[in-house]
Design a binder for these strands. Structure first.
Lengths: 165, 165
DNA sequence: ATCGCTGCAAATGCTTTGCAAGTAC
DNA sequence: GTACTTGCAAAGCATTTGCAGCGAT
């Protein structure tokens, strides 16, 4: 195995097919296409419709319902994560997985409340918090989702004037 | 009507009326009822429908659409927070506000991935993370939403009880 | 040849909106 | 009296489901 390839790596297509078969599911082109789209759009937070449109460019015959059904499978296989930015639709992105199947602790999402831009912040600083929770409540944290709202570097400068109405 | 008196945290009804008038909105009974329901169900993560049913007990004439419209107003006034536990509906809870209008840093939500129970964890340990983000990216965090997934004490105990008391 | 999978359309479920009547100010 | 609000029903949207034909094994 590679020593320390923390750079994003493609899900091995063979491994994906194997995962499908293990679940008693069939390997279809549509399922491959959806996974490929999500891989080629890392950190893009695609909606189901965006995935659909993206796949349709090369494979116009695909149906939106199939995209939704495939998303559910990918979720169950822990190959993708779902994120919700409160804009009315669910979004999806490839999960960061190491070759041994251990999940990278995710990045957090920085959401600018002025311009709406979403950026990322890779981080593992939540361990202290998770330890504190275990100690005080007995709750064993295995995953987390962190959304941080604020002003991005560009919008932060003009922060002084708060609108009063 | 439920009498839930935790004076320091109740939104002063007069202050609420003032906030409405400041926005050019009228003070109506329905708006008061919805706020009261949310106050009497602190940390209960109510859905719009649950608020509706709760209000309907004493005021059967209220309509669901009015509840939705009132929720939007309360959100704009920062009197409530929206939370989504991926169960298909939005949930709402009273925001923790001090009398001077400064927002309490919220609690985090601990979501058990086995039994689905949602508990809370009051905490402000995210300051180190927010400072790190400011330093590295220039993003100025003013609010955050943290969901922690894992096993609650009851469910976690069953998984590892054999090895540890 | 099985039986799952697909695309389409219809259905679902939460939320929003149009409208006429009602209410705050 | 003038807007703003309300309740109802209808509409809107994202997502799910039923079904007949198609496709992987």
């Amino acid at each position: 195995m590679t020593m320390n390839e923390s750079k994003s790596q493609m899900v091995d297509p063979e491994r994906f097919k194997q995962m499908l078969r293990l679940k008693g599911l069939k390997v279809t082109n549509q399922r491959i296409y959806v996974l490929q789209t999500l891989e080629s759009c890392r950190n893009k937070h695609l909606t189901a419709e965006e995935i659909y449109n993206n796949v349709k460019v090369d494979h116009p015959e695909i149906g939106l319902a199939t995209v939704y059904r495939t998303i559910q499978i990918l979720k169950e296989l822990h190959l993708i994560d779902r994120i919700n930015f409160d804009d009315g639709t669910e979004r999806y992105e490839i999960a960061e997985i190491l070759e041994d199947g251990v999940k990278h602790h995710h990045h957090h999402h920085l959401i600018c409340i002025k311009c709406g831009k979403v950026s990322e912040f890779a981080d593992d600083m939540l361990e202290a918090l998770e330890s504190a929770i275990m100690l005080k409540t007995g709750f064993h944290v295995v995953d987390h989702e962190v959304k941080l709202y604020g002003y991005c570097k560009e919008c932060g400068g003009k922060l002084i004037e708060e609108t009063k109405k």
